[in-house]
């Protein structure tokens, strides 16, 4: 019976979400970052073992059946508040067009912590990228993440001292990386 109620709740939440997003998208360009809440249906399925929670969020399991719209709105939303004017994507080929200097990106609120990077431009070329801030509130993050992906094991990353033969990671020259730099590179553009 409880399962049935929960499933019914999910259907209602989803229907509500579809209605909400279609009414929004009617008068909004699709590519824009809208404020439509990203509904996470997963929290309902997991009775969280109530670790230390700083926010007094109502337990989704108990409220889902009675107040769907409320649980939609209060669902943990990891969408960050992005800097107000997303700059256009800067292709990697343009990297040589920048003024020398060190540039610091705005602090981007990642909801559970802030992210900020700095870049260094020398001889018109991007020479260094470093992280000034990144979220480190592991306990909160852990909890949020375990809700989002119940079946899979999670862990906070930690630096390893082991010596290895090779390293796998996204290359700094990849297109995705070039895109990610767009905010700071816009500051440095001639």
């Amino acid at each position: 019976m409880k399962k049935f109620l929960l499933s019914f709740g999910l259907v209602v939440v989803f229907a509500f979400y579809v209605m909400l997003s279609s009414s929004r998208s009617a008068n909004q360009p699709l590519a824009m970052v809208s404020n439509v809440p990203i509904t996470s249906t997963v929290p309902i399925q997991i009775p969280s073992p109530s670790p230390i929670v700083s926010k007094p969020t109502a337990s989704p399991a108990t409220t889902a059946a009675t107040s769907n719209s409320v649980s939609v709105k209060s669902a943990p939303k990891s969408t960050p508040s992005i800097s107000p004017n997303p700059s256009p994507v800067v292709p990697a080929a343009n990297v040589g067009l920048y003024k020398d200097g060190t540039y610091t990106s705005p602090v981007v609120d990642a909801y559970y912590g802030n992210v900020q990077i700095a870049i260094n431009v020398s001889g018109g070329r991007l020479t260094d990228v470093s992280f000034l801030q990144y979220p480190s509130d592991r306990r909160t993050s852990q909890q949020i993440n375990s809700r989002a992906m119940p079946a899979l094991k999670s862990e906070a990353i930690a630096a390893q001292s082991a010596k290895v033969d090779m390293v796998s990671g996204a290359t700094a020259t990849s297109q995705a990386f070039a895109q990610s730099l767009s905010t700071v590179l816009a500051q440095a553009a001639n």
């Binding site: 990891s78 990077i117 990671g169 996204a170 990386f177 990610s180």
Partner: peptide, 30 residues
């Protein structure tokens, strides 16, 4: 072994399937 990734949160990677324009918050996938 292959890793796909990007090095900053807040990048504008659009999920082509999600019309709401959700921004992913994954930085690395090996």
């Amino acid at each position: 072994v292959a890793t796909s990734g990007t090095y900053i949160r807040g990048q504008h990677i659009y999920d082509p399937k999600d019309k709401s324009g959700e921004i992913t918050d994954i930085v690395s996938l090996t």
